[in-house]
Write a protein that binds this DNA or RNA. Sequence first.
DNA 1: CCCAAACTGTCAGCTACCTGACAGACAATG
DNA 2: CATTGTCTGTCAGGTAGCTGACAGTTTGGG
Lengths: 222, 222
Amino acid sequence: MPAKMKLSNIDVLGLLKSPEYAQLMDGFSERCYAKKELISTPYNENDSIFIVKSGRLRIYLSYEDREFTLALLEAGDIFSTHVKTYAEAMEDSEILTADIRVFQQMLIQNPDVSISVIKVLGILLKNSINIIEGLAFKDVRQRLYDFLLNAIADRGVSQGGGILLKLQLSMEDIALLIGTSRQTVSTLVNELIKCQAVKKIDRQTLLVVDPEIFKEPSPSFP
Amino acid sequence: MPAKMKLSNIDVLGLLKSPEYAQLMDGFSERCYAKKELISTPYNENDSIFIVKSGRLRIYLSYEDREFTLALLEAGDIFSTHVKTYAEAMEDSEILTADIRVFQQMLIQNPDVSISVIKVLGILLKNSINIIEGLAFKDVRQRLYDFLLNAIADRGVSQGGGILLKLQLSMEDIALLIGTSRQTVSTLVNELIKCQAVKKIDRQTLLVVDPEIFKEPSPSFP
DNA sequence: CCCAAACTGTCAGCTACCTGACAGACAATG
DNA sequence: CATTGTCTGTCAGGTAGCTGACAGTTTGGG
């Protein structure tokens, strides 16, 4: 279960700044969104692709007043609205947007860009499959552990006595990411604190003392 | 929840037969697989993409002796092994395979093909997200109903008194597709038969009398 | 600095679904 | 046609995790 769909291994923002993509860049328009503002919904008539310039977005599904977070995006990440998801600014954010038709036009003129697009889609697909694996096979505890392991790999900072984790997330935020209720996350995290595996620094940050206990049973090789 | 990832709206097989793709075709090699034979596993060292020429494949995830079926593929469908899935022949099948590196080379030489690849990936992604929606939000009953609705749209044949559904699947097969146990599917299907919503023709085929009761509560417009 | 709004912890039902078990139906292979 | 394996229906327990409730804490806006 991924903490977020980090796509920055392809340095999109840097790429777009370079002169050879100047004209490609023209297809994009920039806009600011305030915290909690919706950037797109499944009811948006025309598809578009967008790139996060600054801030943080949450991509989520919604169904009968319940929600499930598919991904958190940061500066440099890309997404497309062609799937029926919502995108919401978690803080004030700047977003570059291009209509999908315009973008397709760009692709035809810059065939090498399409290789990058294929890579990004591949990553997105891989992440989706990880989410399915979690939901189909694992209980809430293991999904939480997987989430923490990912967060450590992604943004954990080694420190005397453990790994510092500044998740900028509430219990509820985590619950939406791993597909469970706020209460269950709260209980499980406090269980970890009680058994000394993690220390609570403040509301937003944990110190992970022993990441070992998060590890899942290793797969049996065929 | 899709019955299968039908990708045939892009007529890949026809496309590959046409003369302009003759050289592209050269990159592919053909092989037959017997029923229940594995075509690829997550432990296969080198990635490849493959196209189903005939037969039926099951793409699935496995975790600690449990399985979850992501998709059923038929003639004309495409898949890539770059995600950690298993592919198994459900009946004797002919498969065209190309190494992913060779294929990437082909893409560079045929830029217009990459648009098709992007489309296929987009469809795969959309399907994954449908699966996530099912697992995250819906109970087993609704997942079964969604599966039946999809199957009807996909392969249902209108007939006096209902829609004929030749699913070539056992209760267990369905269970693996919707993420539940064999027993639960059996119970739910028999419940449908008892309340006259469907008639059992034989082991493999149902006659759906009233598809209306499968419909889920319509989404509240924002 | 104060108050409202947003978070957090915890607990007591409740229930959808899993598991294991077993008997009966069906299919296919010699 | 007999026999073996595969598929099906059903039931009785057990449990993970949901829901609602409520009190305590923290945060931030005015």
